[in-house]
Every structure is written in structure tokens, then in C-alpha cells.
């Protein structure tokens, strides 16, 4: 698998560290209730299909990116810098 780093271009999967679903970027408010924090910290879907994951370009430029891909076909649709994805989510 090759991932399109927004900074470096298309790179081999072995250059990246996998973190998990990009919902990690949507941190609850500090005073959110336990159920919400439990969901954020522990609960993940296991989608067969399209998903948005956080990857770290550890052996490359050092950017955190959000990759939009399909877990069934392995098709990769694109990637954005996590900081941009975060800003976009914050802007609603």
C-alpha cells in the first residue's frame, strides 16, 4: 500500500506509523460525561469499507495525516494534514 502524504507525495506504507481512527482528533470537552470519554478513549468501529485513519509519517516528513481509504478494496482516496482536518472540524 502507498499513502499520499500531502507534503512528500505518494510513499510506501512502511514509512508510516498507524494510529487508528481519526475520531481521535475530536476530543470531547474536559467536562464531558464519562460515557462520552469512554467512547472517545476506548470504543472504535471496525468498518468494512470507507474509513478515515490517522497515520504518522514517521520515517518521512514527520507530519500527522488523515487518510481516507477503503478497508475492503484498499483503495486510497486521499489524505490531508491532521492539523488541517482538525481546523476544518473545529470550523464545523
Amino acid at each position: 500500500m502507498r499513502l499520499p502524504c500531502p507534503i512528500c507525495g505518494e510513499r510506501d506504507r512502511r514509512e508510516f506509523y498507524y494510529k487508528g481512527h481519526a475520531l481521535a482528533l475530536n476530543r470531547p470537552d474536559p467536562d464531558a460525561d464519562d460515557a462520552e470519554w469512554d467512547d472517545y478513549v476506548h470504543l472504535r468501529d471496525n468498518p468494512a469499507g470507507r474509513t478515515r485513519d490517522l497515520w504518522y509519517h514517521s520515517a518521512g516528513c514527520g507530519a500527522w495525516i488523515v487518510v481516507d481509504r477503503d478497508t475492503v478494496t484498499h483503495e486510497v482516496f486521499g489524505a490531508t494534514l491532521a492539523e488541517d482536518a482538525e481546523a476544518r472540524d473545529a470550523a464545523g
Binding site: C8, G9, R11, R14, E15, A59, G60, C61, G62
Partner: peptide, 12 residues
């Protein structure tokens, strides 16, 4: 074409 003279990269 992908890595011409003057290209630089971090990798493994």
C-alpha cells in the same frame, strides 16, 4: 522523473 537532481527526501 520522481526524484530529479536537487531532490531531497526523508525515508528509510
Amino acid at each position: 522523473t520522481a526524484f530529479p537532481v536537487g531532490a531531497a527526501a526523508r525515508s528509510e
